[in-house]
Protein backbone atom coordinates (compact mmCIF):
# COMPACT_ATOMS: atom_id res chain seq x y z
CA UNK A 1 0.00 0.00 0.00
CA UNK A 2 2.20 2.75 -1.24
CA UNK A 3 -0.10 5.65 -0.65
CA UNK A 4 -0.45 8.38 -3.17
CA UNK A 5 -0.82 11.78 -1.56
CA UNK A 6 -3.09 12.98 -4.32
CA UNK A 7 -5.66 10.33 -3.64
CA UNK A 8 -7.22 11.75 -0.54
CA UNK A 9 -7.38 15.05 -2.34
CA UNK A 10 -9.38 13.51 -5.17
CA UNK A 11 -11.78 12.16 -2.60
CA UNK A 12 -12.13 15.30 -0.53
CA UNK A 13 -12.03 17.77 -3.43
CA UNK A 14 -13.27 15.83 -6.40
CA UNK A 15 -12.66 17.56 -9.75
CA UNK A 16 -15.22 18.02 -12.49
CA UNK A 17 -18.32 17.05 -10.56
CA UNK A 18 -21.45 17.96 -12.47
CA UNK A 19 -23.65 17.40 -15.45
CA UNK A 20 -23.42 18.12 -19.17
CA UNK A 21 -26.44 18.45 -21.41
CA UNK A 22 -27.44 14.90 -22.25
CA UNK A 23 -29.24 15.96 -25.42
CA UNK A 24 -26.21 17.81 -26.83
CA UNK A 25 -25.08 15.75 -29.84
CA UNK A 26 -21.46 16.29 -28.82
CA UNK A 27 -21.98 14.88 -25.33
CA UNK A 28 -21.56 11.18 -24.62
CA UNK A 29 -22.98 9.78 -21.39
CA UNK A 30 -21.71 6.65 -19.67
CA UNK A 31 -23.59 5.07 -16.81
CA UNK A 32 -22.21 2.13 -14.86
CA UNK A 33 -22.91 0.41 -11.58
CA UNK A 34 -21.23 -1.86 -9.08
CA UNK A 35 -23.48 -4.39 -7.41
CA UNK A 36 -20.68 -5.27 -4.99
CA UNK A 37 -21.41 -2.08 -3.12
CA UNK A 38 -24.53 -0.72 -4.81
CA UNK A 39 -22.79 2.32 -6.20
CA UNK A 40 -23.46 4.14 -9.46
CA UNK A 41 -21.25 6.32 -11.60
CA UNK A 42 -22.19 8.67 -14.45
CA UNK A 43 -19.45 10.04 -16.65
CA UNK A 44 -20.09 12.58 -19.43
CA UNK A 45 -17.67 13.68 -22.13
CA UNK A 46 -18.01 16.64 -24.44
CA UNK A 47 -16.24 15.73 -27.63
CA UNK A 48 -15.45 18.03 -30.57
CA UNK A 49 -16.31 17.01 -34.10
CA UNK A 50 -12.59 16.30 -34.52
CA UNK A 51 -12.80 13.69 -31.76
CA UNK A 52 -11.00 15.62 -29.01
CA UNK A 53 -12.40 15.53 -25.48
CA UNK A 54 -12.82 19.14 -24.41
CA UNK A 55 -14.77 18.67 -21.22
CA UNK A 56 -15.59 15.89 -18.75
CA UNK A 57 -18.02 15.78 -15.85
CA UNK A 58 -18.97 13.02 -13.45
CA UNK A 59 -21.40 12.21 -10.73
CA UNK A 60 -20.61 9.24 -8.51
CA UNK A 61 -22.61 7.90 -5.62
CA UNK A 62 -20.25 5.57 -3.91
CA UNK A 63 -17.29 4.95 -1.70
CA UNK A 64 -14.16 7.05 -1.58
CA UNK A 65 -12.29 4.87 -4.05
CA UNK A 66 -15.06 5.17 -6.61
CA UNK A 67 -15.19 8.95 -6.26
CA UNK A 68 -11.42 9.24 -6.48
CA UNK A 69 -11.31 6.94 -9.53
CA UNK A 70 -13.89 8.94 -11.45
CA UNK A 71 -12.38 12.26 -10.46
CA UNK A 72 -8.99 11.08 -11.65
CA UNK A 73 -10.15 9.88 -15.05
CA UNK A 74 -12.03 13.11 -15.81
CA UNK A 75 -8.72 14.91 -15.33
CA UNK A 76 -6.88 12.45 -17.51
CA UNK A 77 -9.23 12.42 -20.48
CA UNK A 78 -9.47 16.17 -20.99
CA UNK A 79 -7.55 17.18 -24.08
CA UNK A 80 -7.11 13.60 -25.19
CA UNK A 81 -8.53 12.19 -28.39
CA UNK A 82 -11.24 9.57 -28.21
CA UNK A 83 -8.77 6.91 -29.30
CA UNK A 84 -6.27 7.91 -26.63
CA UNK A 85 -8.99 7.88 -23.99
CA UNK A 86 -10.01 4.37 -25.00
CA UNK A 87 -6.55 3.13 -24.02
CA UNK A 88 -6.89 4.18 -20.38
CA UNK A 89 -7.16 0.99 -18.41
CA UNK A 90 -8.32 0.27 -14.93
CA UNK A 91 -4.79 -0.84 -14.10
CA UNK A 92 -3.53 2.72 -14.68
CA UNK A 93 -6.18 4.04 -12.33
CA UNK A 94 -5.59 1.35 -9.73
CA UNK A 95 -1.85 1.94 -9.81
CA UNK A 96 -2.19 5.72 -9.58
CA UNK A 97 -4.55 5.42 -6.62
CA UNK A 98 -2.86 2.38 -5.10
CA UNK A 99 -6.16 0.52 -4.83
CA UNK A 100 -6.17 -2.81 -3.03
CA UNK A 101 -7.76 -5.80 -4.79
CA UNK A 102 -11.07 -5.37 -3.02
CA UNK A 103 -11.34 -1.86 -4.45
CA UNK A 104 -10.10 -2.68 -7.95
CA UNK A 105 -13.71 -2.74 -9.12
CA UNK A 106 -13.83 1.02 -8.56
CA UNK A 107 -11.13 1.52 -11.16
CA UNK A 108 -12.88 -0.96 -13.46
CA UNK A 109 -15.98 1.14 -13.05
CA UNK A 110 -14.09 4.25 -14.14
CA UNK A 111 -12.67 2.51 -17.18
CA UNK A 112 -16.09 1.15 -18.12
CA UNK A 113 -17.63 4.58 -17.68
CA UNK A 114 -15.20 6.16 -20.18
CA UNK A 115 -15.87 3.40 -22.68
CA UNK A 116 -19.62 3.67 -22.21
CA UNK A 117 -19.54 7.45 -22.67
CA UNK A 118 -17.51 7.24 -25.86
CA UNK A 119 -19.80 4.48 -27.07
CA UNK A 120 -22.81 6.69 -26.47
CA UNK A 121 -21.16 9.57 -28.34
CA UNK A 122 -20.33 7.34 -31.31
CA UNK A 123 -23.89 6.02 -31.46
CA UNK A 124 -25.23 9.56 -31.46
CA UNK A 125 -22.88 10.58 -34.24
CA UNK A 126 -23.80 7.54 -36.27
CA UNK A 127 -27.49 8.28 -35.82
CA UNK A 128 -26.86 11.86 -36.97
CA UNK A 129 -24.95 10.70 -40.05
CA UNK A 130 -27.68 8.27 -40.93
CA UNK A 131 -30.24 11.05 -40.65
CA UNK A 132 -28.17 13.35 -42.85
Amino acid sequence: MAYSDKVIDHYENPRNVGTLDKSDPNVGTGLVGAPACGDVMRLQLKITDEGVIEDAKFKTFGCGSAIASSSLVTEWVKGKTVDQAMTISNKDVARELALPPVKIHCSVLAEDAIKAAIDDFKKKRQARQEQA
Binding site: V32, A34, A36, V40, V102, H105, V108
Partner: peptide, 24 residues
Protein backbone atom coordinates in the same frame (compact mmCIF):
# COMPACT_ATOMS: atom_id res chain seq x y z
CA UNK B 1 -21.47 -10.35 -5.82
CA UNK B 2 -19.06 -9.34 -3.08
CA UNK B 3 -16.03 -9.61 -5.32
CA UNK B 4 -16.51 -7.70 -8.51
CA UNK B 5 -12.85 -7.71 -9.40
CA UNK B 6 -13.33 -11.27 -10.60
CA UNK B 7 -15.29 -9.83 -13.50
CA UNK B 8 -18.74 -11.06 -12.56
CA UNK B 9 -21.87 -9.20 -13.20
CA UNK B 10 -21.82 -5.56 -13.90
CA UNK B 11 -24.36 -5.84 -16.68
CA UNK B 12 -27.34 -4.33 -14.90
CA UNK B 13 -29.84 -2.89 -17.41
CA UNK B 14 -29.08 0.74 -18.32
CA UNK B 15 -32.61 1.86 -17.41
CA UNK B 16 -32.23 0.47 -13.94
CA UNK B 17 -28.94 2.26 -13.34
CA UNK B 18 -30.47 5.48 -14.61
CA UNK B 19 -33.28 5.04 -12.13
CA UNK B 20 -30.83 4.43 -9.29
CA UNK B 21 -28.90 7.56 -10.23
CA UNK B 22 -32.13 9.59 -10.28
CA UNK B 23 -33.09 8.18 -6.89
CA UNK B 24 -29.71 9.01 -5.43
Amino acid sequence: LEREDTGTQKDMPFEFLEEVLDLR
